[in-house]
Nucleic acid binder design. Structure first.
Length: 156
DNA sequence: CCCTGATTCGC
DNA sequence: GCGAATCAGG
């Protein structure tokens, strides 16, 4: 891989679809793959994989001009915090799928991050060593929980 | 108040 | 086709 950076390759799309069907939020999927949330949503829309919102009445057709009102750079701040702000677009934390296990093999100190292999039908989990009272390992916990001050429980 | 989902538009 | 921008809803 000299200088090629294909945004959406087969594996990427498979992972996207698997995570989407797994019930993960677009933010989780984006963080896991390493792209922005809109990129995931855009790709899903292109693939006709919307979760269920076929609005018929198009009301947001009004496009007067680019009027920056509040500058929605919230995603960028979050992504930067997750990735380390000054590093390559890779998942932060020691995430290795060598310890992946099934749901039945999950323990209290095992990372419960859903791992979907783009080749097998078996759905596995991260299975890494997670600290006590923590559902994910150090790497995935950062993806699951927002580094912001508000610790809101995920609704997805 | 903020975040998530989906569509639309520019490149 | 991809990604950012935007809107609507929760």
């Amino acid at each position: 891989m000299p200088v090629l950076s294909p945004t959406w390759t087969d594996e990427r799309i498979e992972l996207l679809k698997q995570h989407f069907e797994a019930g993960l939020s677009c933010r989780e999927i984006a963080a896991d793959i390493g792209v922005s949330r809109n990129a995931v949503i855009g790709k899903l829309s292109r693939l006709n994989l919307t979760r269920g919102r076929t609005i018929d009445d198009r009301k947001v057709q009004d496009r007067p001009a680019r009027a920056p009102r509040t500058v929605p750079r919230l995603q960028y701040e979050m992504l930067a915090t997750i990735y380390g702000d000054t590093d390559a677009p890779v998942v932060a934390g020691p995430i290795d799928e060598a310890n992946r296990c099934s749901l039945l093999e999950l323990s209290e100190n095992r990372c419960r991050w859903p791992i979907s292999t783009p080749g097998a039908e078996d759905f596995c989990f991260c299975g890494n060593s997670a600290p006590d009272s923590q559902p994910y390992c150090s790497g995935h916990s950062r993806l699951a929980y927002r580094p912001n001050g508000r610790a809101r429980v995920m609704r997805g």
